[in-house]
Simulated assay, not measured.
Amino acid sequence: MRKLVYFVASTLDGFVAGPDGADPTGPDGFWPIPQDYIEYLAAEYPETLPGPARQALGITAEGDRFDTVVEGRLSYEIGLKAGLADAFPHLRHLVFSRTLRQSPDPAVQVVQDDPVAVVRELKREDGKDIWIVGGGSLAGALYPEIDRLIVKMAPLTIGTGIPLFGRGAAFGARTWRLTDHVVMGSGAMFLTYDRASAEGEPA
């Protein structure tokens, strides 16, 4: 069965964005993007780079991890403001929103149904894994369905901001097994955790 993977950049203190939710890697952003980090992404996770970045880097590889990306409306609007109606044209792209009535791009599917139900259907389909690109609120809504965490840990603290699972996630203790880790010379880390158990489940 396909896995739901939350592949996300996080600060050391557990935030995925600043308090305003704006793109922390944009022109006015505060997030460091070292060269070794970009090179590792391009080599190991080429499908997670937006279309313009792939083009600039000469990347044509499909990648062997994901064929579907899901995101929330606020995360999607960051791309829209940058002029990207479909930041990932090389992937099946779903945007969960109860207020966005029409997709700005024919290749992007706007979904108003329950994210958990939709993701359970996606998992039953054939294909590669499903990537949650963001934001924290969608990850919080899908928390029970996440099978793998890949945290791109930045050597950065910001004190406050949008937490890894948003501000409205329900409490649910869960343990994870560290299955891979890569430490960059720049101090960035890629930490891969597979779901071990949730509260009430056998470990």
Results as ranks from 00 to 15, higher is better:
L100G: 02
R101K: 12
R101C: 00
R101Q: 11
Q102R: 12
Q102P: 00
P104D: 04
P104G: 04
P104E: 05
D105G: 02
P106L: 02
P106I: 03
P106V: 06
A107R: 14
A107F: 02
A107V: 03
V108R: 09
Q109E: 15
Q109T: 15
Q109F: 08
Q109H: 14
Q109S: 14
V110A: 08
V110F: 05
V110L: 12
V111R: 12
V111P: 09
V111D: 09
V111Y: 06
D113S: 13
D113W: 08
D113G: 14
D114L: 06
D114F: 05
D114C: 05
D114M: 10
D114G: 09
D114Y: 04
P115G: 06
P115H: 01
V116D: 07
V116G: 07
V116R: 15
A117T: 13
V118C: 10
V118P: 10
V118T: 14
R120Q: 15
R120P: 07
R120N: 15
E121G: 08
E121L: 10
E121R: 11
L122H: 05
L122P: 13
L122K: 01
K123E: 00
K123G: 00
R124K: 15
E125I: 00
E125D: 13
D126H: 13
K128H: 14
K128G: 04
K128I: 06
D129P: 13
D129A: 07
I130N: 01
W131F: 07
W131Y: 02
W131N: 10
I132W: 07
I132V: 14
I132G: 09
I132A: 06
V133H: 13
V133M: 13
V133N: 13
V133G: 09
G134L: 01
G134A: 07
G136H: 03
G136T: 12
S137R: 15
S137H: 13
L138N: 03
L138R: 11
A139D: 04
G140T: 05
G140D: 02
A141M: 14
A141R: 14
Y143H: 13
Y143L: 14
E145D: 13
E145M: 05
E145K: 00
I146G: 01
I146K: 01
I146C: 08
I146P: 08
I146W: 00
I146D: 05
D147S: 06
R148L: 06
R148K: 09
I150A: 08
I150M: 08
I150D: 06
V151T: 13
K152C: 12
K152A: 12
M153L: 15
M153T: 15
M153A: 14
A154C: 11
A154D: 02
